[in-house]
Structures are given as C-alpha cells and as structure tokens.
Computed example of a mutant assay.
Amino acid sequence: MKNLKNILATKRAKAGLFATSVLGSASAFAADHTAAIDAAVADGTTNYTAITTGVILVAAVGFAIGMIVSKLRN
C-alpha cells in the first residue's frame, strides 16, 4: 500500500511539474499584437471621423433644403 501511495505521489508531482512547464512555455511564446492593435485604433479613428463628417454634412444639407423650401413657399 505504501508503494502505491509513493507511486501516486510521484505521478502527481510530475503532473504538476508538467502543467507548470506548459503554462510557462505558453506565456513565453505569446505573440506581440501591439502593431495590430495600433492599426485597429487608427482605422477606428478614421471611421469615426468619416461618420462624424457625414452626419454633419447630412444635417447641413437637410437644413439648407429646408431653408430653400421655406423661401420658395413665401
């Protein structure tokens, strides 16, 4: 029975050592995604600027058409 306990204890120790080594090596191979994140931020800023400009343009055109129509009615 003691022999079985010793075998199980060594197996658990080896499994724990294996798990920590796998987790440690996984973090060592982590990729650097800062360039992709910076590109996404730049694209998002460009899209936000385009949307803001479009909304202001549509509002200005709508206001101008409203003014023209109101002047034509008078």
Rank of each mutant, 00 (worst) to 15 (best):
A39W: 07
A35C: 03
M67D: 04
I68E: 03
T53N: 12
G44V: 05
L4A: 10
K2Y: 03
T52C: 05
A59K: 07
A26R: 12
I68N: 02
A35M: 05
A40G: 01
L57Q: 15
K14C: 09
L8D: 04
L8T: 07
A50Q: 08
A9R: 14
A9E: 15
A42C: 00
S21P: 01
T20V: 14
K2D: 13
D43W: 01
A19V: 01
G66T: 10
A60N: 00
A28T: 13
N3S: 15
L23K: 13
D38T: 06
L4M: 07
K11A: 15
D43Q: 06
M1V: 00
T10E: 15
M1R: 05
L8W: 05
D38C: 01
I37M: 06
N74Q: 14
S21G: 09
L57I: 11
N6E: 14
A35Q: 09
T53M: 03
T53S: 12
A59V: 13
A15C: 06
H33I: 05
G44M: 05
I56Q: 03
A39Y: 07
T10K: 14
L17H: 11
A28F: 14
A30P: 01
V61K: 05
L23P: 02
A28C: 10
V61P: 01
N74R: 12
H33S: 09
G62N: 04
K2E: 14
T45E: 14
